[in-house]
Design a protein around this nucleic acid. Structure first.
Lengths: 221, 221
DNA sequence: GACGTCAGTCAACACCCTGTCGAGTGCCAT
DNA sequence: ATGGCACTCGACAGGGTGTTGACTGACGTC
């Protein structure tokens, strides 16, 4: 369930046919077209025909590569979440060094990665409402992050840096949810939103307050 | 901009024609059908024909009452936000009596009102991505709430109950955003979510942490 | 070097949904 | 009785999706 593309044909994704068949180019072209068009208009205003023409193929041919418009988005989303995971790296295991700095680093990296793909992230948030697959993928990704944060909170409590309080999982869910929605508003720019330059510090402050009741949690001794 | 229905005909919403013309019934029937159908399937899977047939009229006739499917949702949303505002009442001006109890009351009432219309609220959250009108209305509603919370936070700081820190507006935005997303997950039931019975307390805890750095803020002396 | 196979391609079709137009129908005031 | 208005819908145009079936060309095989 890591890769969502599956496609219609091509059982073995990178089979015997030496390197990059013509189809590989087309698939890449579709993805690139999607990402490009998303910078210009909303996902709902992009038709399969737009994607196909952008990739230099006809509409029916599009279906050879992807079962639907949403599947393209899914593939793109999969990529970005991998990128985010890579950016987050091992920050959480090094929390005790300097909690405030590490949490900030984590939030900052999420912010940068999402910001670099804001059109795509916005599109996913929009489509999540109508598409069950996107919803499921996003839920799975979120679950991973929630579990990581939950574990980190518990570790901080165990070493006495953070007080007991809410169940760590509930706290992790709420904090992740806050980030998601706040980023969405900031990137979308409609409705009340935190300024992009401040958003990391605002979120950080609330994470520290929620986890430590304090903006300067103690490092390990 | 309070009422969003506008409709195609009927310049004067409640004109001379004595009480309730036949059209009034139809309009109500459409709204009722929409709310009923929303409990069963997603907004996107409800066609205008469904709404019309449910109200006992033909599809073209639907357009006499509403300019689009989204306009129906908009009207419904307008209603719920009014209900929420009424439920919230003057809780915020009585904050100093017992801050923890009052904040809890506020969150609790939001929770109850949204919970009573969860299908509708979920539909709006979904459509907000694709429909500019819903987005604008929601943004306006949110802006009102954010301003109210911002003012309340500033009042708490002025009387010395809450410490200075983040700009009150940013704090208000983040807390409102958190609530919105957390409720969405709880009501939608997909992805990581806080249990419905705990959600008020979880949110309350984070509000108090964010605003007071303390779960038992002082009442007025 | 004919031949089957299979990735890749698309014109044409069937379908569904939206929004509009124009021709009604019945009620009410004048 | 008649003109206007609230209200109604059959029929159409348009645009999107997803599928079908025929076609092309490169490749391995005998």
């Amino acid at each position: 369930m890591t890769t969502a593309r599956t496609g219609a044909g091509r059982a073995s994704p990178r089979g015997r046919r030496a390197a990059r068949s013509a189809g590989d180019d087309r698939e890449t072209a579709i993805l690139a077209t999607a990402e490009r068009l998303l910078e210009q208009r909303a996902f709902g205003d992009i038709s399969i025909d737009d994607l196909a023409r952008g990739a230099g193929i006809s509409r029916p041919t599009f279906y050879f590569y992807f079962p639907s418009k949403d599947a393209v988005l899914l593939t793109l989303l999969d990529r970005v979440t991998e990128e985010v995971d890579a950016a987050a790296g091992d920050v959480l295991v090094r929390l005790a060094e300097d909690p405030r700095a590490r949490w900030r680093e984590l939030i900052q990296r999420f912010h940068e990665t999402f910001g670099a793909h804001r059109a795509l992230v916005l599109a996913c948030a929009q489509v999540r409402g109508t598409n069950a697959e996107v919803r499921r993928l996003w839920a799975a990704v979120l679950e991973r992050w929630v579990q990581a944060i939950e574990a980190a909170i518990e570790a901080e409590r165990r070493r006495g840096a953070a007080p007991d309080g809410l169940p760590a999982r509930d706290l992790a869910i709420a904090l992740n949810s806050m980030n998601e929605r706040v980023w969405y508003a900031t990137f979308a720019g409609d409705g009340p939103a935190v300024d992009e330059r401040d958003v990391v510090d605002v979120l950080l402050d609330l994470w520290l307050a929620g986890i430590y009741r304090d903006t300067t949690p103690p490092p390990s001794t």
